[in-house]
Design a protein around this nucleic acid. Structure first.
Lengths: 200, 200
DNA sequence: GTTGACATCTATACAGCGTTAAGATGGTCA
DNA sequence: TGACCATCTTAACGCTGTATAGATGTCAAC
């Protein structure tokens, strides 16, 4: 509740504070700049304190990754639904790439199997939910015909690959001078029109 | 020269031994299992020895990554050139995904900007050369029309995204029971036919 | 209210890490 | 032979994640 402004007794809700601290570190320094001890430092507790709430560092990072999937899903769903599924999917794809570039640390963490516990029961649903925007748009257009899973995966592959390459700076070897955003906007229509079986 | 079979004086060629040791560690334990000290241990030298040859750990890992790009290029070029560019590209794409799955550690390292020094003058050419197989196949079919760079990037995005998702085990949420290889073979034709402007 | 049980956090320690600095060692060339 | 230089060792520093034992505060039962 933060009712008194000094560091309280047993800190109150260390769990949430550690998650917030970890997310902030990752946003500032990237996933490589994260350390469990610094998260504890920022939360004002001793290095051993996080263990009680999260076990290991992976436990804490898994929480951040789950938040990342939630925020990715929110970003995808922020694109309005129109009567043009092709345009919708294009907007979602741009949102996906935009999310990767704007939240590089989170995005990289989300796809780091060594830092995230995939056996957490919340992981699968969180990942699926994040992609529900894609699935919905595709389903609205294909009318349920074909293998929906395969369609989502094909679209996801294309967009995910582009997000990764743009994030890794690979695009600069191909289009000098363009920002990743400009580059994405330029390439996306072509990429999507062809990777989506029912598009155009 | 390795003329005597005992550990010699100043070791002989520590540089090559360290690169080989690092590559072996990464192949065995993945990129997260790598440590500079263990590479030194395997080469039979002290922890400080690598510094003289590579500066920091990134220096050594950059060498491994450069080897990785070379081997990736070789894998792509191993697919024979026929008079059917679509089939060629399909084979190369399968080779790309196959490389990622067979050499996961190397592949992950190659795309880890924090572990590889992109400012190394050999980096850009190595990456470009690795993709020359894609570029050649695409160029052979498109006849030089259109933006060659953009075409390569679109194809690369799709395949790279699929390789990453398969490598990260994401495919298992969509096609249970199928091995990544089976999954790749199943999806690739669809992905490629649609991501490649001149295919089919 | 006092007491016991419990969750929470601290203090401390350990092994391992990357990196650095100073010095020993061996090869090479004048 | 002697000077020079590349190479490697030894030792140390501060950092990391994690484990253990104990202190501290909360809460429920009596």
């Amino acid at each position: 509740m933060q009712s008194s402004d000094e560091a309280p007794y047993h800190h109150g809700n260390l769990r949430a504070a550690l998650i917030a601290a970890a997310d902030a570190i990752i946003a500032e320094k990237g996933i490589e700049g994260f350390s469990l001890r610094e998260a504890a430092r920022r939360a004002g507790v001793s290095p051993g304190a996080p263990a009680h709430h999260f076990g290991t560092a992976v436990g804490l990072l898994t929480e951040v990754a789950l938040l990342g999937y939630a925020s990715l899903g929110a970003a995808l769903n922020a694109a309005p639904i129109t009567d043009d599924p092709t345009a919708d999917l294009r907007a979602q794809a741009l949102a996906y790439v935009g999310f990767a570039l704007a939240h590089a640390g989170r995005f990289r963490l989300m796809f780091r199997p060594d830092l995230v516990n995939r056996d957490d029961p919340r992981y699968g649903p969180a990942a699926t939910a994040a992609l529900s925007g894609f699935a919905g748009t595709i389903g609205r257009s294909s009318g349920g015909q074909g293998d929906a899973m395969a369609q989502v995966f094909v679209v996801w592959s294309s967009i995910h690959g582009m997000a990764n390459l743009a994030l890794d700076g690979k695009a600069q070897y191909m289009f000098d001078g363009a920002t990743p955003q400009q580059f994405a906007a330029q390439i996306l229509p072509d990429l999507l029109a062809k990777s989506w079986p029912y598009g155009r």
